[in-house]
Design a protein around this nucleic acid. Structure first.
Lengths: 205, 205
DNA sequence: GTCTATAAAAGGATAGAC
DNA sequence: GTCTATCCTTTTATAGAC
Protein backbone atom coordinates (compact mmCIF):
# COMPACT_ATOMS: atom_id res chain seq x y z
CA UNK A 1 0.00 0.00 0.00
CA UNK A 2 1.31 3.43 -0.93
CA UNK A 3 1.83 6.40 1.34
CA UNK A 4 -1.04 8.81 1.69
CA UNK A 5 1.30 11.79 1.91
CA UNK A 6 3.35 11.08 -1.19
CA UNK A 7 5.11 14.23 -2.27
CA UNK A 8 6.28 14.74 -5.81
CA UNK A 9 9.68 16.11 -6.71
CA UNK A 10 8.17 19.49 -7.55
CA UNK A 11 6.21 19.68 -4.36
CA UNK A 12 9.35 19.10 -2.35
CA UNK A 13 11.29 21.63 -4.42
CA UNK A 14 8.60 24.21 -3.80
CA UNK A 15 8.53 23.57 -0.08
CA UNK A 16 12.29 23.86 0.19
CA UNK A 17 12.29 27.10 -1.78
CA UNK A 18 9.35 28.45 0.19
CA UNK A 19 11.13 27.71 3.44
CA UNK A 20 14.23 29.60 2.29
CA UNK A 21 12.34 32.63 1.08
CA UNK A 22 9.69 32.90 3.82
CA UNK A 23 12.11 32.35 6.68
CA UNK A 24 14.52 34.99 5.46
CA UNK A 25 12.04 37.62 4.23
CA UNK A 26 8.91 36.93 6.22
CA UNK A 27 5.38 36.50 4.89
CA UNK A 28 4.78 40.11 3.85
CA UNK A 29 8.03 40.66 1.94
CA UNK A 30 8.19 37.23 0.33
CA UNK A 31 7.28 36.97 -3.37
CA UNK A 32 5.69 33.98 -5.06
CA UNK A 33 7.87 34.70 -8.09
CA UNK A 34 11.02 34.44 -6.02
CA UNK A 35 9.89 31.14 -4.53
CA UNK A 36 9.15 29.82 -8.02
CA UNK A 37 12.54 30.95 -9.31
CA UNK A 38 14.35 29.39 -6.38
CA UNK A 39 12.46 26.15 -6.93
CA UNK A 40 13.36 26.26 -10.62
CA UNK A 41 9.74 25.93 -11.50
CA UNK A 42 6.86 27.98 -12.86
CA UNK A 43 4.83 30.32 -10.70
CA UNK A 44 1.59 28.61 -11.67
CA UNK A 45 2.86 25.43 -10.06
CA UNK A 46 2.88 27.03 -6.65
CA UNK A 47 -0.85 27.55 -6.96
CA UNK A 48 -1.39 24.12 -8.43
CA UNK A 49 0.16 22.50 -5.37
CA UNK A 50 -0.73 24.91 -2.59
CA UNK A 51 -3.62 27.01 -3.92
CA UNK A 52 -2.50 30.33 -2.38
CA UNK A 53 0.40 32.19 -0.81
CA UNK A 54 -1.41 32.04 2.52
CA UNK A 55 -1.75 28.28 2.44
CA UNK A 56 1.86 27.81 1.40
CA UNK A 57 2.98 30.09 4.19
CA UNK A 58 0.89 28.32 6.80
CA UNK A 59 2.45 25.02 5.82
CA UNK A 60 5.98 26.40 6.12
CA UNK A 61 5.29 28.31 9.29
CA UNK A 62 3.75 25.44 11.19
CA UNK A 63 6.70 23.27 10.36
CA UNK A 64 9.16 25.99 11.42
CA UNK A 65 7.28 26.53 14.66
CA UNK A 66 7.53 22.86 15.48
CA UNK A 67 11.27 22.94 14.76
CA UNK A 68 11.67 25.86 17.11
CA UNK A 69 11.12 23.89 20.30
CA UNK A 70 13.44 21.24 21.64
CA UNK A 71 11.96 17.91 22.60
CA UNK A 72 11.85 18.55 26.32
CA UNK A 73 10.09 15.32 27.26
CA UNK A 74 12.78 13.23 25.65
CA UNK A 75 15.66 15.24 27.08
CA UNK A 76 14.08 15.12 30.49
CA UNK A 77 13.74 11.36 30.37
CA UNK A 78 17.33 10.85 29.27
CA UNK A 79 18.96 13.29 31.66
CA UNK A 80 20.42 11.94 34.89
CA UNK A 81 20.28 15.22 36.82
CA UNK A 82 19.53 18.95 36.57
CA UNK A 83 22.99 19.82 35.35
CA UNK A 84 22.90 17.38 32.47
CA UNK A 85 19.37 18.35 31.57
CA UNK A 86 20.07 22.08 31.41
CA UNK A 87 23.26 21.49 29.51
CA UNK A 88 21.37 19.42 26.95
CA UNK A 89 18.58 21.92 26.54
CA UNK A 90 20.99 24.81 26.00
CA UNK A 91 23.15 22.80 23.62
CA UNK A 92 20.23 21.68 21.51
CA UNK A 93 19.05 25.26 21.18
CA UNK A 94 22.40 26.61 20.15
CA UNK A 95 22.94 23.79 17.68
CA UNK A 96 19.55 24.40 16.14
CA UNK A 97 20.23 28.09 15.56
CA UNK A 98 23.73 27.51 14.28
CA UNK A 99 22.10 25.36 11.63
CA UNK A 100 19.09 27.62 11.02
CA UNK A 101 20.17 31.17 11.82
CA UNK A 102 17.06 32.87 10.47
CA UNK A 103 14.61 30.73 12.41
CA UNK A 104 14.45 32.80 15.62
CA UNK A 105 13.61 36.13 14.04
CA UNK A 106 11.15 34.47 11.68
CA UNK A 107 9.16 32.82 14.44
CA UNK A 108 9.25 35.84 16.72
CA UNK A 109 8.22 38.32 14.03
CA UNK A 110 5.42 36.27 12.58
CA UNK A 111 4.03 35.56 16.04
CA UNK A 112 4.21 39.28 16.80
CA UNK A 113 2.19 39.98 13.67
CA UNK A 114 -0.38 37.35 14.52
CA UNK A 115 -0.33 36.39 18.20
CA UNK A 116 -3.78 34.81 18.03
CA UNK A 117 -2.31 32.12 15.80
CA UNK A 118 -0.41 30.75 18.81
CA UNK A 119 -3.32 28.81 20.23
CA UNK A 120 -3.93 26.81 17.08
CA UNK A 121 -0.21 26.31 16.52
CA UNK A 122 0.36 24.94 19.98
CA UNK A 123 -2.57 22.59 19.71
CA UNK A 124 -1.59 21.30 16.30
CA UNK A 125 2.13 20.93 16.95
CA UNK A 126 1.77 19.62 20.50
CA UNK A 127 4.39 22.04 21.84
CA UNK A 128 4.34 22.24 25.63
CA UNK A 129 6.97 24.65 26.96
CA UNK A 130 5.47 24.75 30.44
CA UNK A 131 7.17 21.42 31.04
CA UNK A 132 10.49 23.21 31.47
CA UNK A 133 8.88 25.75 33.74
CA UNK A 134 7.31 23.25 36.07
CA UNK A 135 10.50 21.23 36.08
CA UNK A 136 12.47 24.29 37.19
CA UNK A 137 9.86 25.08 39.84
CA UNK A 138 10.16 21.58 41.19
CA UNK A 139 13.94 21.73 41.32
CA UNK A 140 13.81 25.04 43.14
CA UNK A 141 11.50 23.50 45.74
CA UNK A 142 13.76 20.49 46.08
CA UNK A 143 16.69 22.83 46.60
CA UNK A 144 18.81 21.35 43.84
CA UNK A 145 18.99 24.77 42.19
CA UNK A 146 18.64 28.29 43.50
CA UNK A 147 16.56 31.03 41.92
CA UNK A 148 14.01 33.59 43.04
CA UNK A 149 11.42 32.40 40.52
CA UNK A 150 11.38 29.72 37.86
CA UNK A 151 9.93 32.15 35.33
CA UNK A 152 12.78 34.59 35.83
CA UNK A 153 15.27 31.81 35.31
CA UNK A 154 13.54 30.42 32.26
CA UNK A 155 13.25 33.82 30.58
CA UNK A 156 16.93 34.45 31.20
CA UNK A 157 18.03 31.13 29.76
CA UNK A 158 15.86 31.54 26.67
CA UNK A 159 16.93 35.15 26.20
CA UNK A 160 20.61 34.30 26.29
CA UNK A 161 20.16 31.36 23.92
CA UNK A 162 17.97 33.03 21.32
CA UNK A 163 18.71 36.74 21.29
CA UNK A 164 22.25 36.74 19.85
CA UNK A 165 20.90 34.76 16.89
CA UNK A 166 17.69 36.73 16.48
CA UNK A 167 19.66 39.98 16.38
CA UNK A 168 22.69 38.52 14.65
CA UNK A 169 23.63 41.37 12.28
CA UNK A 170 23.08 43.92 15.01
CA UNK A 171 25.22 42.08 17.54
CA UNK A 172 27.89 41.33 14.99
CA UNK A 173 28.24 44.98 14.07
CA UNK A 174 27.71 46.54 17.44
CA UNK A 175 29.72 44.31 19.70
CA UNK A 176 32.13 42.55 17.37
CA UNK A 177 32.72 45.47 15.03
CA UNK A 178 31.75 43.15 12.17
CA UNK A 179 34.55 40.72 12.86
CA UNK A 180 32.69 37.70 11.46
CA UNK A 181 35.21 35.15 12.63
CA UNK A 182 35.17 36.39 16.19
CA UNK A 183 31.39 36.47 16.21
CA UNK A 184 31.04 32.96 14.80
CA UNK A 185 33.49 31.66 17.39
CA UNK A 186 31.52 33.45 20.06
CA UNK A 187 28.32 31.73 18.93
CA UNK A 188 30.02 28.35 18.77
CA UNK A 189 31.23 28.74 22.34
CA UNK A 190 27.87 29.90 23.58
CA UNK A 191 26.77 26.37 24.50
CA UNK A 192 29.48 26.29 27.09
CA UNK A 193 29.44 29.90 28.24
CA UNK A 194 25.68 30.10 28.76
CA UNK A 195 25.79 26.91 30.78
CA UNK A 196 28.57 28.33 32.93
CA UNK A 197 26.74 31.60 33.41
CA UNK A 198 23.53 29.87 34.40
CA UNK A 199 25.44 27.49 36.68
CA UNK A 200 27.00 30.41 38.48
CA UNK A 201 23.52 31.72 39.15
CA UNK A 202 21.74 28.57 40.26
CA UNK A 203 24.40 26.32 41.78
CA UNK A 204 25.47 28.48 44.66
CA UNK A 205 28.29 27.01 46.70
CA UNK B 1 14.51 84.36 12.39
CA UNK B 2 12.37 81.36 11.72
CA UNK B 3 13.32 77.71 12.03
CA UNK B 4 14.69 76.03 8.97
CA UNK B 5 13.04 72.74 9.83
CA UNK B 6 9.53 74.06 10.34
CA UNK B 7 7.06 71.20 10.15
CA UNK B 8 3.44 71.76 9.34
CA UNK B 9 0.62 70.21 11.29
CA UNK B 10 0.00 67.70 8.52
CA UNK B 11 3.63 66.73 8.27
CA UNK B 12 3.72 65.99 11.98
CA UNK B 13 0.45 64.06 11.79
CA UNK B 14 1.84 61.95 8.97
CA UNK B 15 5.06 61.23 10.81
CA UNK B 16 3.21 60.18 13.94
CA UNK B 17 0.91 57.92 11.96
CA UNK B 18 3.82 56.49 9.96
CA UNK B 19 5.68 55.68 13.16
CA UNK B 20 2.70 53.81 14.55
CA UNK B 21 2.07 51.80 11.42
CA UNK B 22 5.66 51.07 10.37
CA UNK B 23 6.85 50.11 13.84
CA UNK B 24 4.00 47.67 14.39
CA UNK B 25 3.76 46.16 10.89
CA UNK B 26 7.22 46.65 9.45
CA UNK B 27 8.10 48.17 6.08
CA UNK B 28 6.80 45.34 3.89
CA UNK B 29 3.39 44.92 5.51
CA UNK B 30 2.69 48.62 6.09
CA UNK B 31 0.23 50.34 3.77
CA UNK B 32 0.29 53.96 2.73
CA UNK B 33 -3.49 54.01 2.92
CA UNK B 34 -3.42 52.93 6.56
CA UNK B 35 -0.93 55.65 7.41
CA UNK B 36 -3.10 58.23 5.67
CA UNK B 37 -6.20 57.03 7.51
CA UNK B 38 -4.43 57.08 10.86
CA UNK B 39 -3.20 60.60 10.13
CA UNK B 40 -6.74 61.65 9.21
CA UNK B 41 -5.45 62.95 5.93
CA UNK B 42 -5.47 62.15 2.24
CA UNK B 43 -3.14 59.57 0.75
CA UNK B 44 -1.82 62.04 -1.81
CA UNK B 45 -0.48 64.15 1.02
CA UNK B 46 1.95 61.46 2.01
CA UNK B 47 3.58 61.76 -1.38
CA UNK B 48 3.38 65.52 -1.33
CA UNK B 49 5.42 65.64 1.87
CA UNK B 50 7.65 62.58 1.57
CA UNK B 51 7.66 61.63 -2.14
CA UNK B 52 7.63 57.86 -1.63
CA UNK B 53 6.97 55.06 0.84
CA UNK B 54 10.70 54.35 0.90
CA UNK B 55 11.60 57.89 1.85
CA UNK B 56 8.93 58.04 4.54
CA UNK B 57 10.13 54.76 5.94
CA UNK B 58 13.77 55.85 5.99
CA UNK B 59 12.82 58.93 7.94
CA UNK B 60 10.89 56.93 10.54
CA UNK B 61 13.47 54.19 10.76
CA UNK B 62 16.44 56.45 11.32
CA UNK B 63 14.61 58.17 14.12
CA UNK B 64 13.62 54.85 15.70
CA UNK B 65 17.16 53.58 15.43
CA UNK B 66 18.43 56.63 17.27
CA UNK B 67 15.82 56.09 19.98
CA UNK B 68 16.95 52.53 20.40
CA UNK B 69 20.26 53.35 22.06
CA UNK B 70 20.61 54.88 25.49
CA UNK B 71 22.83 57.90 25.84
CA UNK B 72 25.82 56.08 27.23
CA UNK B 73 28.16 59.06 27.30
CA UNK B 74 25.81 61.01 29.48
CA UNK B 75 25.04 58.14 31.83
CA UNK B 76 28.73 57.38 32.13
CA UNK B 77 29.54 60.94 33.07
CA UNK B 78 26.81 61.09 35.68
CA UNK B 79 27.41 57.70 37.29
CA UNK B 80 29.53 57.57 40.42
CA UNK B 81 30.58 53.93 40.07
CA UNK B 82 30.05 50.71 38.07
CA UNK B 83 27.02 49.67 40.07
CA UNK B 84 25.18 52.90 39.52
CA UNK B 85 26.14 52.99 35.87
CA UNK B 86 24.90 49.50 35.10
CA UNK B 87 21.74 50.07 37.07
CA UNK B 88 21.07 53.21 35.06
CA UNK B 89 21.73 51.57 31.70
CA UNK B 90 19.44 48.65 32.47
CA UNK B 91 16.72 50.90 33.85
CA UNK B 92 16.78 53.23 30.86
CA UNK B 93 16.44 50.27 28.53
CA UNK B 94 13.54 48.73 30.35
CA UNK B 95 11.77 52.08 30.65
CA UNK B 96 12.20 52.70 26.95
CA UNK B 97 10.64 49.38 25.99
CA UNK B 98 7.83 49.67 28.47
CA UNK B 99 6.95 52.88 26.69
CA UNK B 100 7.61 51.60 23.15
CA UNK B 101 7.00 47.86 23.19
CA UNK B 102 7.21 47.38 19.43
CA UNK B 103 10.53 49.12 19.02
CA UNK B 104 12.85 46.13 19.65
CA UNK B 105 11.33 43.79 17.10
CA UNK B 106 11.02 46.59 14.57
CA UNK B 107 14.70 47.52 14.74
CA UNK B 108 15.92 43.94 14.82
CA UNK B 109 13.77 42.78 11.93
CA UNK B 110 14.48 45.70 9.65
CA UNK B 111 18.21 45.43 10.32
CA UNK B 112 18.01 41.72 9.54
CA UNK B 113 16.37 42.54 6.23
CA UNK B 114 18.97 45.15 5.38
CA UNK B 115 22.15 44.76 7.42
CA UNK B 116 24.17 46.91 5.03
CA UNK B 117 22.09 49.87 6.14
CA UNK B 118 23.81 49.74 9.53
CA UNK B 119 26.93 51.59 8.44
CA UNK B 120 25.06 54.62 7.19
CA UNK B 121 22.72 54.57 10.17
CA UNK B 122 25.51 54.53 12.67
CA UNK B 123 27.34 57.33 10.93
CA UNK B 124 24.27 59.52 10.62
CA UNK B 125 22.90 58.93 14.12
CA UNK B 126 26.26 58.97 15.89
CA UNK B 127 25.47 55.82 17.84
CA UNK B 128 28.58 54.32 19.45
CA UNK B 129 27.76 51.18 21.43
CA UNK B 130 31.40 50.19 21.74
CA UNK B 131 31.64 52.70 24.55
CA UNK B 132 29.87 50.29 26.86
CA UNK B 133 32.11 47.46 25.70
CA UNK B 134 35.37 49.28 26.33
CA UNK B 135 34.04 50.52 29.64
CA UNK B 136 33.30 46.96 30.74
CA UNK B 137 36.72 45.81 29.53
CA UNK B 138 38.35 48.52 31.58
CA UNK B 139 36.40 47.62 34.69
CA UNK B 140 37.33 43.96 34.30
CA UNK B 141 40.99 44.92 34.09
CA UNK B 142 40.64 47.15 37.13
CA UNK B 143 39.07 44.26 38.98
CA UNK B 144 35.93 46.17 39.97
CA UNK B 145 33.82 43.54 38.20
CA UNK B 146 34.39 39.91 37.31
CA UNK B 147 33.68 38.34 33.94
CA UNK B 148 35.45 36.09 31.50
CA UNK B 149 35.02 38.55 28.64
CA UNK B 150 33.38 41.94 28.29
CA UNK B 151 31.60 40.84 25.12
CA UNK B 152 30.02 37.88 26.86
CA UNK B 153 28.79 40.13 29.63
CA UNK B 154 27.49 42.78 27.28
CA UNK B 155 25.61 40.30 25.12
CA UNK B 156 24.02 38.78 28.22
CA UNK B 157 22.88 42.12 29.59
CA UNK B 158 21.42 43.22 26.28
CA UNK B 159 19.76 39.86 25.69
CA UNK B 160 18.04 39.90 29.05
CA UNK B 161 16.90 43.49 28.61
CA UNK B 162 15.61 43.28 25.06
CA UNK B 163 14.45 39.73 24.39
CA UNK B 164 11.38 39.55 26.64
CA UNK B 165 10.07 42.64 24.87
CA UNK B 166 11.05 41.59 21.37
CA UNK B 167 9.30 38.25 21.84
CA UNK B 168 6.53 39.58 24.03
CA UNK B 169 3.53 37.59 22.77
CA UNK B 170 5.59 34.42 22.67
CA UNK B 171 6.88 34.84 26.21
CA UNK B 172 3.50 35.87 27.50
CA UNK B 173 1.85 32.76 26.13
CA UNK B 174 4.61 30.27 26.68
CA UNK B 175 5.82 31.17 30.14
CA UNK B 176 2.95 33.12 31.66
CA UNK B 177 0.16 31.13 30.09
CA UNK B 178 -1.24 34.44 28.76
CA UNK B 179 -1.68 35.87 32.22
CA UNK B 180 -1.27 39.50 31.08
CA UNK B 181 -1.17 40.95 34.55
CA UNK B 182 1.56 38.61 35.71
CA UNK B 183 3.57 39.26 32.59
CA UNK B 184 3.29 43.04 32.87
CA UNK B 185 4.33 42.87 36.50
CA UNK B 186 7.26 40.71 35.49
CA UNK B 187 8.37 43.30 32.94
CA UNK B 188 7.98 46.13 35.40
CA UNK B 189 10.18 44.30 37.89
CA UNK B 190 12.79 43.48 35.28
CA UNK B 191 14.81 46.62 36.01
CA UNK B 192 15.51 45.29 39.45
CA UNK B 193 15.78 41.57 38.70
CA UNK B 194 18.18 41.94 35.78
CA UNK B 195 20.39 44.15 37.86
CA UNK B 196 20.39 41.59 40.65
CA UNK B 197 21.14 38.76 38.27
CA UNK B 198 24.01 40.63 36.66
CA UNK B 199 25.31 41.67 40.08
CA UNK B 200 25.39 38.08 41.19
CA UNK B 201 27.58 37.32 38.19
CA UNK B 202 30.03 40.19 38.30
CA UNK B 203 30.28 41.23 41.93
CA UNK B 204 31.66 38.06 43.41
CA UNK B 205 32.13 38.20 47.13
C1' DG C 1 -1.74 72.60 0.98
C1' DT C 2 -5.48 69.60 0.26
C1' DC C 3 -8.52 67.02 -2.25
C1' DT C 4 -10.53 63.67 -6.20
C1' DA C 5 -9.61 60.99 -9.83
C1' DT C 6 -6.69 58.20 -12.27
C1' DA C 7 -2.51 56.28 -13.95
C1' DA C 8 1.05 52.85 -13.40
C1' DA C 9 3.17 49.03 -11.40
C1' DA C 10 3.45 44.96 -8.76
C1' DG C 11 1.97 40.75 -7.33
C1' DG C 12 -1.30 36.98 -6.59
C1' DA C 13 -4.33 33.91 -8.96
C1' DT C 14 -6.54 31.40 -12.98
C1' DA C 15 -7.54 29.54 -17.84
C1' DG C 16 -6.30 26.63 -21.12
C1' DA C 17 -2.93 24.34 -24.26
C1' DC C 18 0.16 20.56 -24.19
C1' DG D 1 2.06 17.92 -14.10
C1' DT D 2 3.92 21.75 -16.40
C1' DC D 3 3.97 25.67 -19.11
C1' DT D 4 2.44 30.48 -21.30
C1' DA D 5 -0.51 33.95 -21.34
C1' DT D 6 -3.63 36.69 -19.06
C1' DC D 7 -6.70 38.35 -15.58
C1' DC D 8 -7.72 40.87 -11.49
C1' DT D 9 -6.80 42.92 -7.18
C1' DT D 10 -3.97 45.59 -4.40
C1' DT D 11 -1.02 49.27 -3.71
C1' DT D 12 2.03 52.94 -4.89
C1' DA D 13 2.39 57.17 -7.25
C1' DT D 14 0.92 61.29 -10.04
C1' DA D 15 -2.11 64.89 -12.46
C1' DG D 16 -4.81 68.53 -11.97
C1' DA D 17 -8.78 71.14 -9.91
C1' DC D 18 -9.63 74.06 -5.99
Amino acid sequence: MMEKTTTTVSEEAILTAARNVFIVKGMAAARMQEIADEAGINKAMLHYYFRSKDKLFERVFKEAFKDFWPNLELQLKEATDVKVFLKTVIASYIDLFLEKPFLPNFIISEINNNPERLEVLMRETGVRPLILLSYLEEQIKLGTIQATTARELMVNIISMCIFPFAARPLMSRMIFNNDQEAFNLFLLNRKETIFQTISQLIFVK
